[in-house]
């Protein structure tokens, strides 16, 4: 069953088209990644999907409920961690969770039980009665997540959930997303972190200048461009770029003291590099074949912007 359906969404701000005819379906229980460079329209799209913004054209359906016609019913189905969605710093972690729960009509007993479990899971139990203003950014984000999932939503929207977090908080956030998904929750997340999207998402959608440029599972997207495979090699001496000239190599880059040779035929390039080393008296310090990368596919699809 389709959990989220976006149909021909369009949103303009003045003369700028922020979202241009965007359509996609997200299946129930799926983790769906929404990637794009800065200003591509990710946040506007998530605001349209969560009912914070009204589209100029198009429709959003949440679990079969038309968001435009029944916004409150649709919002009851979702938990949202907005991009600028800070929690109330003058309230405690517990008060923030209670506030969120009350909006969803949860009773005090259920709220008590649910909040205690979440506070423990997110490592905030000891600090539950402290004002959020005394918390670090990572702890605030954990409170934000707790507020978004307090009512066990069917769909969880996360806008850049790990942006600027320390490693521990980032891991905890990812672990929580995975746990929610294991219980059947559909996850829609926007992220800049392509590696994170690669690991977490079953499908990713890439948006650029308000338009969808690709939508598929990460492995298929990686293979969209044959040349996203590469050989990484370093020698004991400096060599010139011209040395590698070959029909099998589509692009040559450097990364520190290493050369990156992009190809659709790694086997031939490895043999070519070994032959070159022998011929020119070079010693190979390291040589690695790198599989197709989602990052490279992303960069190509979005015209070289990250």
């Amino acid at each position: 069953m389709v959990a989220i359906r976006a149909e021909s969404l369009q949103k303009k701000f003045g003369k700028i088209i922020a979202v241009d005819n965007v359509s996609f379906d997200v299946e129930e229980g799926e983790i769906f990644g929404f990637l794009g460079p800065n200003g591509a329209g990710k946040t506007t799209t998530i605001r349209l999907l969560t009912g914070i913004l009204t589209p100029d054209a198009g429709n959003v359906t949440i679990e079969g409920i038309n968001l435009g016609n029944n916004p409150i019913e649709a919002k009851m189905m979702m938990g949202v961690i907005p991009e600028t969605g800070n929690v109330y710093v003058d309230l405690t972690a517990k008060q923030n969770m209670y506030l969120a729960g009350k909006y969803y009509g949860m009773t005090k007993e259920v709220l008590k039980k649910k909040s205690e479990g979440l506070l423990s899971h997110l490592g905030l139990y000891e600090r539950r009665n402290d004002h959020v203003k005394t918390f670090s950014k990572g702890m605030r984000q954990r409170v934000s997540i707790a507020c978004a999932i307090i009512h066990s939503p069917n769909i969880l929207f996360l806008d850049e959930p790990t942006e600027g977090l320390d490693v521990q908080s980032r891991r905890l956030v990812i672990e929580t997303i995975n746990q929610m998904n294991e219980t059947g929750c559909t996850v829609f997340l926007t992220t800049h972190n392509i590696e994170e999207a690669n690991k977490l998402c079953e499908r990713v959608c890439i948006i650029d200048k308000g338009k969808i440029v690709a939508i598929d599972n990460p492995e298929k997207l990686k293979n969209t461009f044959d040349e996203t495979q590469s050989i990484e090699v370093s020698f004991n001496k400096k060599v010139k770029r011209d040395l590698f000239a070959s029909d099998f190599i589509s692009k040559i880059d450097t990364s520190g003291d290493k050369w990156l040779l992009y190809t659709n035929n790694p086997d031939k390039v490895v043999k070519h590099v070994v032959a070159l080393a022998e011929k020119n008296g070079l010693r190979i310090i390291s040589i690695t074949t790198c599989g197709p990368s989602l990052e490279e596919a992303f960069v190509r699809l979005t015209g070289g912007k990250e």
Binding site: R47, E83, N86, V87
Partner: peptide, 14 residues
């Protein structure tokens, strides 16, 4: 200013 308004609007409210 505090960045809480978007969260407020994301709750089931109009």
């Amino acid at each position: 200013q505090a960045g809480t308004y978007e969260r407020l609007l994301s709750f089931p409210v109009s």
